[in-house]
């Protein structure tokens, strides 16, 4: 395996229900190599989404570290993590999470719009737009770019969400059950897209509870009750 782009060290995540502690992750440690397609498999409620959120710098672990390209992400200021999410990380959520008031194209432009102040926008708009249209075209959404998310099918929504996660050329893509709400055929299509992206060099960390899908990955990890099981 090549040099790791992402490392998790003893990740613990607790939730508090009043005085009662619920430990969702019990010291998870793993490395993700550059260009790798890693799949984390586990039953519902095992803590897959939680782990992905921690590694994607969306949430803070109770204990442990996440090293992104060797840097301890949670030791750095929040601004640094915000920036990293905006420029280096792509995230595909379990439930698409597109902004309902924005069109598919505008949703895809969001990372750029978050990055760019109004004065600079006219200068970069053409370039960003062409890039967004290119990604949407790759994912077969060229004709739907003016539509609102509510006007799309589930598969199309998920592809729009993938487009938004890819548009800024991230170094790692996290995908949380990207096919969870789709039928088998559409799910297979999404998986082919991810595999194609990975072949082009993108690091992909995917979470699923579907063993058949997981087989497409280079490496498979099992998460059960907040603990990783290494399988031979």
């Amino acid at each position: 395996m090549s040099e790791p782009i992402l490392q998790a060290r003893g990740l613990v995540k607790d939730y508090w229900m009043g005085a009662a502690r619920l430990r969702v992750l019990h010291g998870v440690g793993l490395d993700v190599g550059r260009g790798e397609f890693l799949c984390i498999l586990g039953p519902s409620g095992s803590g897959k989404s939680t782990l992905l959120h921690l590694m994607g710098l969306l949430d803070r672990p109770t204990e442990g570290q996440v090293l992104f390209e060797g840097e301890d992400a949670f030791a750095r200021p929040k601004r640094w993590r915000d920036r990293l999410r905006n420029e280096a990380i792509g995230f595909v959520f379990q439930f698409y999470h597109l902004m309902p008031d924005l069109s598919v194209l505008e949703n895809t432009l969001l990372p750029a719009m978050i990055r760019t102040p109004l004065v600079r926008w006219p200068l970069v708009r053409g370039r960003e737009r062409r890039r967004a249209e290119e990604v949407l075209g790759d994912l077969g959404l060229r004709d739907r770019k003016g539509h609102l998310p509510t006007e799309l099918s589930g598969g199309e929504r998920q592809r729009a969400a993938i487009a938004r996660a890819l548009v800024h050329r991230p170094r790692v893509l996290f995908a949380d059950e990207p096919t969870g709400n789709l039928d088998t055929a559409t799910g297979g299509e999404i998986m082919r897209v991810l595999a194609r992206l990975n072949r082009k060099g993108l690091t992909v960390v995917m979470v699923t509870h579907d063993e058949r899908l997981a087989r497409q990955a280079h490496r498979l990890l099992h998460l059960v009750d907040g603990r990783l099981l290494q399988r031979p």
């Binding site: 601004r79 915000d82 999410r85 999470h97 902004m99 969001l110 938004r164």
Partner: peptide, 16 residues
């Protein structure tokens, strides 16, 4: 709230 979460996940700052 969801939009807020999405924007933050994509790197928008809390104050923003």
């Amino acid at each position: 709230g969801r939009d807020v979460g999405i924007l933050k996940a994509l790197g928008a700052r809390d104050a923003g």
